[in-house]
Design a protein around this nucleic acid. Structure first.
Lengths: 205, 205
DNA sequence: TGTACATCAGTGAACGCGCGTTCACTGATGTAC
DNA sequence: TGTACATCAGTGAACGCGCGTTCACTGATGTAC
């Protein structure tokens, strides 16, 4: 990795930490460069403006999240061949991963963009939309495989159930932040898991 | 209502609309007073600083939300005496209310505060925490009454299930905003309802 | 091996603008005697 | 009924600061011949 890429990466790390705790427009370039030990013009060498920083950050964040989902749910599939049980294992792993993050999940970039939408350019907001729709697709595929084998015990739209995974995460992050308790997020993921169990798993006799 | 209270209320309405769509610090006082047709000093007559506006807004928002919950769930209780069925009816009503809002739910003030926490003073953040904890208490009471009559079919912490109501709403709002589809929020509430049904309602034979 | 040029990764100074905030003042309405 | 004073609901001008952005320049490294 060249010196430049390194600096760029560092700027993004610093920016992300600030943004996730304070919001995008409350995190100033001055603040970022002070921590990075660089001049403001150096910042603008790496990003042509602040929206480009937002876009780069969002892209990286989404890619990382995709990676995390890939890892967790393919690991889960290795542990159990049945799609339902594999999904349940994956949700447990996800819940543990979220609980283990230093001070809980640091907050979600996607939500950050949502809560100040007017201030980002179209490209950034579009990126955001696509990420959420990609999550929907990912989880819908899993749920369809499950539903084939296990007829759902309630009349639900699987697409909405797929969205529920993301919604649970986003809602859990907000709640964790609001009450100041990181455990809430992993608890909520476990409740989603409980719903999946009750929805698909046949009554044990 | 005096002239002053009227103006104050109008300032808050205008501010809220801006804040819910763009975020708090992206909504400038200039913008608010331009729409209100008042001078900036007039604004500072009503609110000693911007944090006081935030606090007033949050207080009003929380009170309104409490009122909404009161109305919906007491109406539901009128319609059915059983706590579980009443809760299910309430959730249906809530889902419909959310779907009927002009362009979906405009976004949640509580989450707005969460996503730029550092920028608010302690008092505002505390208000936020208390509101969420009040929701927990409210729904926990309902769930305990239900659980007494209907033993849950999965081993869950009722406090977490109570939080799930708020979490579902917050997550649903984020998702609705992200994909630009107001329906997502009411769908998510219905899925929470489906969970409650599966969790408490005995198998029909 | 030396020279010429190009690219990379920045520096330093200056910019204009919008923001929240202050402060001295004012005209209209309400209240006391 | 008239006068004095107080409060309400603002006005108008000025403030300083921090913000994102620009632009001309630079020293170090890489590449071509």
């Amino acid at each position: 990795m060249s010196k430049g890429e390194n600096t760029r990466e560092r700027l993004m790390d610093i920016a992300q930490a600030g943004i996730l705790s304070k919001g995008f427009w409350a995190t100033s370039i001055d603040e970022i460069i002070a921590e990075a030990g660089i001049t403001k013009s150096g910042f603008f060498y790496h990003f042509k403006d602040k929206n480009e920083l937002a876009r780069a950050l969002l892209e990286r964040y989404i890619a990382l999240e995709e990676q995390l989902f890939d890892d967790i749910f393919s690991r889960a599939r290795e542990l159990h061949d049945d799609p339902l049980h594999a999904f349940m294992i994956g949700l447990k792993l996800l819940s543990e991963t979220m609980a283990d993050l230093p001070n809980g999940h640091p907050g979600c970039m996607v939500a950050t963009v949502c809560y100040s939408e007017r201030m980002f350019d179209n490209e950034v907001r579009d990126l955001n939309r696509k990420a959420v729709l990609a999550w929907r697709t990912r989880f819908l595929a899993m749920l369809e495989e499950i539903a084939e084998r296990y007829p759902p015990r309630d009349d639900v739209d699987l697409k909405a159930v797929a969205d529920m995974m993301s919604s649970t995460a986003e809602g859990g992050i907000v709640m964790s932040k609001a009450v100041g308790d990181p455990k809430v997020l992993s608890q909520q993921i476990l409740l989603f898991r409980s719903y999946i169990r009750l929805l698909f798993l046949p009554e044990s006799h």
